[in-house]
Design a protein around this nucleic acid. Sequence first.
DNA 1: AACCATATTGACCGATCGGTCAGAACAATC
DNA 2: GATTGTTCTGACCGATCGGTCAATATGGTT
Lengths: 221, 221
Amino acid sequence: MTVETAPNESANRERIEQRILNAAEQIFSVHGYRGASLQAIADKAELPKANILYYMGSKQALYVRLLNRMMRRWNAVLENITPESDPGEVLSDFIRTKIVLGQRYPDGSKLFAAEILAGAPFLDEYLAGELRDWVASRAAIIRQWSLQGKMDDVDPRWLIFLIWSATQHYTEYSAQITRVLGRDALNEEDLASITQFLEHVILKGCGISLLASSQASSAAN
Amino acid sequence: MTVETAPNESANRERIEQRILNAAEQIFSVHGYRGASLQAIADKAELPKANILYYMGSKQALYVRLLNRMMRRWNAVLENITPESDPGEVLSDFIRTKIVLGQRYPDGSKLFAAEILAGAPFLDEYLAGELRDWVASRAAIIRQWSLQGKMDDVDPRWLIFLIWSATQHYTEYSAQITRVLGRDALNEEDLASITQFLEHVILKGCGISLLASSQASSAAN
DNA sequence: AACCATATTGACCGATCGGTCAGAACAATC
DNA sequence: GATTGTTCTGACCGATCGGTCAATATGGTT
């Protein structure tokens, strides 16, 4: 039984920690690091404030944990990309995946955006290390696609930034978009239309001919 | 002399108010509305805290004034656009102007972004009123361009959002971009390269043929 | 029942928050 | 040199901030 109780206890702890993390993600995403208060997070999580600090140690530790959790969610993006890949398929998948991730984790995405806006004081290492390497390696492959004549000779870094910005926009600027469109929220139809638009413009804009590959319907991955 | 002293005095007041507004813009742009403190703004402006409140009334009034100032700066964008305009010229100009505005007013742009991230509590009226009309009227004209065969049949609203996001990205995400690129800041050369890239991809992506207008190189389609 | 590690939380701490106010400092008019 | 209106600011207010801590509650082991 001792073998079973341990996981049970830690499972309970895990449940509470997730409740705190989700509440904190909401508060931080709206008000940023400095603007968020532990009291507001505690209220959202329906726990006493002292309990938040018991589990998370400090405001900063809680915040950093949220950033790490969000970064881990992005790990799958553009994972298997090679010089032999089809640019149309890969970029389509890139666009679709980013749109979906933004819709799945709106609070985390906004939290990340707020951190960057604030000058990324807690993300120095990640941005200048992991992420820089990520961009450099993908850029090198895209560069090869251009040399192979698979697409126009565009700067791959600007292309990556373009896809990032265009997709993230619909999460981070949702308050503006819904008001401009006069809606409560974007529905599935909107998102499909937006995704198709971005695929059309970006792929065509890079001189990528749509072969037998993706577009509206097929395409596996 | 009495006629001259009055404007002199109010000119002095104007000078101080601008100093406060610029300091506040910096602080708010980094920490958002709730995260910013009047003390930090006062320190940045090198004035006593009570002086800030003497000139601005309250934290909220100061913040709203900054939002209005920023919105006024955007008024010139896409001002003279007609169904007879050349899409390539207009959209090129749109892209270039947005890039320049972001570089000219980085703090104001970030302040605006933070307000949207927070759910735009102070911008309801503007977004659902002025800005919605602005988008609707421009979208109607772009729609006509499509009908005239001047460009592909894309949703004009997504096109406007794309240009907004792609250009604003280089201001609001400057902290991420500089670290990923390993630079201190973007220089003129970078900005020219980025602008040209965006013009190339977006115009070509919308099926707009580059006539006798601008652009540096060729590009078929 | 005794024991112990972990969980829980009300009460409290010094610092800082936005905002008020009385009075000093200043400048122009008579 | 009074008078008057504006500018300026130190001192202060109640509320809230992140964080600490002692006391209590809980649950499994012996």
